[in-house]
Computed example of a mutant assay.
Amino acid sequence: MSTDAKQLVQPPPEHCPGTESETAGKSAACAGCPNQQICSTAPKGPDPDIVEIEQRMKTVKHKILVLSGKGGVGKSTFSSQLSFALAMNQDTQVGLLDIDICGPSIPKIMGLEGEQIHISGQGWDPVYVQDNLAVMSVGFLLEKEEDAVIWRGPKKNGLIKQFLKDVFWSDLDYLIVDTPPGTSDEHLSIVQYLKTSHIDGAVIVTSPQDVALIDVRKEINFCKKVGIPIIGVVENMSGFVCPKCTKESQIFLPTSGGAEQMSKDMNVPFLGKIPIDPLIARSCDEGKSYLITFPESEATKQYKLVFDKILNSVDTKQ
């Protein structure tokens, strides 16, 4: 049985030797940890589920994480529009995995409210927006959309593992993983479970103001620490262009230079800026692709520039 199955009472501390390590529960870093007894008595060795995940992920060419240090910066919106954009090519197979366990907004954004997961002989079947765009979310497991998911870390980690191990994605060109804000259980789990399956990289979404950039710096440091390549940073909600007078206004002031300056300071790629457009929010509420519905908008033009940079980065790393 893996340590996950024994259910850690708290997330592993920063200097944890690893719950599967031979020194788990015995090293100096374990002293005083609430998980010490669990780790010291758990069977050691590689988690057998990792092998199953690796086999399942062999049919997925590219895996891209979408991260944000802070909530409310439009990360799930970005994940959905990236997925819609990739699926505009009918020859491209796309999957969108929502691991925001406590705040699953992807079903609504993708127009899949009320859908349920079906189980076949090959595993859990994702829910399809169209023939080449599949989605999986805890939202499909809830009886009612407003039901609260009140889970501790181990249960959330177990569901993420199940999504990776048991969902039958078939052959995918891209798997986009929409994560919750921060650098906690869900992020550690996705990195751990995909450690042998190759993550192409992370796209980090922020808004221009310092209160968001502070948390994004932490997200960048998290990626560097756990070895996730950073594809780049996107500044969302970057100014508002009046559709009538075309004058641009800064809604969230970039008092320290915004995401572009931060990216230079931290030596990570800057992918571009997406302006505020109320029609983006309307498209998400209606479960539609903003890029298809408003192809001539300024935001669509900027989305496409950013998406091209992401695809170029992923393709050159093959």
Rank of each mutant, 00 (worst) to 15 (best):
T3K: 13
D4H: 13
K6T: 00
Q7A: 14
Q7H: 15
L8A: 03
V9D: 06
Q10Y: 01
P12D: 05
P13M: 07
H15E: 06
C16V: 05
P17C: 08
E20C: 05
S21M: 07
C30T: 01
A31D: 03
P34A: 12
P34Y: 05
I38E: 00
I38H: 07
S40G: 04
T41G: 08
T41N: 11
T41W: 06
K44T: 02
G45V: 00
G45N: 06
D47K: 06
D47W: 06
D47Q: 05
I53R: 14
Q55S: 07
Q55N: 12
Q55W: 07
R56D: 00
K58G: 05
K61S: 04
K63M: 02
K63A: 02
I64K: 14
L65Y: 12
L67K: 09
V73H: 10
G74A: 08
S76C: 05
S76D: 02
T77G: 15
L82W: 09
L86W: 11
A87I: 02
M88L: 00
N89H: 08
N89S: 12
T92R: 10
L96I: 03
D98W: 05
D100A: 04
I101A: 04
C102D: 10
I106E: 00
K108R: 15
I119G: 00
D125Y: 13
D125F: 07
Q130G: 02
N132A: 15
S137Y: 12
V138C: 11
G139N: 02
L142T: 09
E146I: 08
E146S: 15
A148C: 08
P154T: 11
K155S: 14
K156C: 03
N157H: 15
L159P: 00
L159T: 05
I160G: 13
Q162W: 05
L164E: 02
K165C: 09
V167F: 14
S170N: 12
D173Y: 07
D173T: 03
Y174V: 03
P180F: 13
D185G: 09
L188Y: 07
S189I: 01
Q192K: 13
Y193D: 04
L194T: 02
D200C: 06
G201C: 08
V205G: 13
S207L: 01
Q209E: 02
V211T: 11
E219S: 15
E219N: 09
C223Q: 09
K224T: 08
I228F: 07
I228G: 10
I230R: 11
G232K: 08
V233M: 15
V234M: 15
N236T: 01
K247P: 00
P254A: 15
G258V: 02
E260V: 01
E260W: 01
Q261T: 03
M266N: 10
V268N: 04
P269N: 13
L271V: 04
G272S: 13
K273F: 05
I274A: 10
D277E: 05
P278Q: 09
P278M: 13
P278C: 08
L279P: 01
I280G: 13
A281M: 09
C284H: 14
C284I: 14
G287Y: 15
Y290R: 11
L291N: 06
P295W: 11
S297G: 06
E298L: 15
Y303P: 00
L305R: 11
F307L: 09
L311C: 03
S313L: 01
S313R: 03
S313H: 07
V314M: 12
V314S: 07
V314A: 10
D315I: 05
